[in-house]
């Protein structure tokens, strides 16, 4: 029946828009040019490294995780600058969208904070190939008025986020009610935080709980709400517009830094996954190689506050 519906819709579309057949958004020409691209906009990567960029002409689209979007965007801009004739269009939409779209073949790369097999049913998930391009870290942040709190242990976090502690004075802070700002249940941030920090504990619900669907909205909510606490990605925390407005906390006494994510001592971190349907080919493969290359791993990733992946 689903197939029937789909065929029906495909017919309907074919009838209304004849061009539908031409709309497959990927037209990567596999002819890789071996000539080194002119590294015009290269920032600080070694010239020899920049020369190794494998330029393939064509156009691909990525969709998915908004947490990975800034990194993919910057990588795409750098690839675009290195290789004329290649266009990588980066769209967001959320991890679920990324997985759905790459699975459906609507985009070439689907970005996700969570593993495909946690979201998609097995047969679909197995056809997707995971490319881990970075580590991403999250940090617990509070409103500036939560003075005197610089660290929360895992147990304190559990108490705070399950509603056992309702006032900051219970964890060494001022006499101020705690306002929890969650991410939506489906978000990678919330899933990672639950898995690594909260474990099997049940998160608090009710009137004191806000849910904001994005790093930007969370930042606004935390900065404007007394006693607010939330979790945001490093790239958003380290953004010059946000950092002065937020109070970033240690986790179990460990600083939330990229270095600590890299060494494994800071545990609130996860892989950034880029998925392709089957093995990557053409421009998609070249772009993924570029993301693993020295310019992205060595320069762009640290600049955007992600962690490089060890080879």
């Amino acid at each position: 029946m689903i197939n029937g519906m789909r065929r029906f819709s495909a017919l309907a579309i074919a009838a209304t828009v004849v061009l539908a057949a031409c709309s497959a958004s990927s037209t990567p020409s596999p002819a890789a040019t071996d000539t080194p691209a002119a590294p015009t906009a290269m920032t600080s990567a070694a010239p020899s490294a920049a020369g190794t960029v494998n330029c393939v002409t064509g156009s691909i689209t990525t969709a998915g995780s908004t947490a990975l979007q800034p990194l993919i965007q910057d990588a795409a801009t750098a690839y675009d600058a290195a290789c004329s004739g290649a266009t990588v269009t980066v769209t967001g939409g959320g991890s679920g969208t990324g997985l759905s779209q790459v699975d459906a073949g609507s985009v070439q790369i689907g970005a996700s904070d969570v593993l495909a097999n946690t979201k998609l049913a097995t047969p679909d998930a197995d056809t997707l190939v995971d490319h881990v391009v970075c580590r991403q870290g999250w940090i617990v942040v509070t409103n500036k008025d939560v003075t005197g709190v610089t660290n929360l242990t895992t147990q304190q976090n559990i108490d705070v986020w399950t509603g056992v502690d309702t006032n900051w004075k219970q964890v060494g802070g001022p006499d101020l009610p705690i306002v929890l700002i969650f991410r939506p249940q489906g978000s990678g941030t919330r899933a990672t935080f639950k898995k690594i920090v909260l474990g099997s504990a049940t998160e608090a619900t009710g009137g004191q709980v806000l849910t904001e669907d994005s790093n930007g909205a969370v930042t606004t909510a935390v900065t404007t709400t007394n006693g607010a606490v939330s979790v945001i990605g490093f790239s958003y925390y380290n953004d010059p517009a946000n950092k002065p407005l937020l109070n970033g906390l240690q986790l179990d006494g460990t600083d939330a830094t990229i270095a600590n994510v890299g060494s494994g001592t800071y545990k609130l971190a996860a892989d950034g996954n880029l998925y392709t349907k089957g093995a990557a080919t053409g421009l998609t493969a070249a772009f993924l190689d570029f993301m693993m290359g020295p310019q992205v791993q060595g320069t762009i990733i640290p600049k955007d506050s992600y962690g490089p992946v060890a080879h």
Binding site: M5, R6, S9, A10, A12, I13, V17, L19, A20, S23, A24, S25, T61, A63, T91, G93, S100, Q101, A104, G105, S106, V107
Partner: peptide, 14 residues
């Protein structure tokens, strides 16, 4: 559902 998913166009201006 019509264009992006079922027709596999992905996100497009059309």
């Amino acid at each position: 559902i019509l264009f992006v998913d079922d027709a596999h166009w992905g996100f497009t201006a059309l």
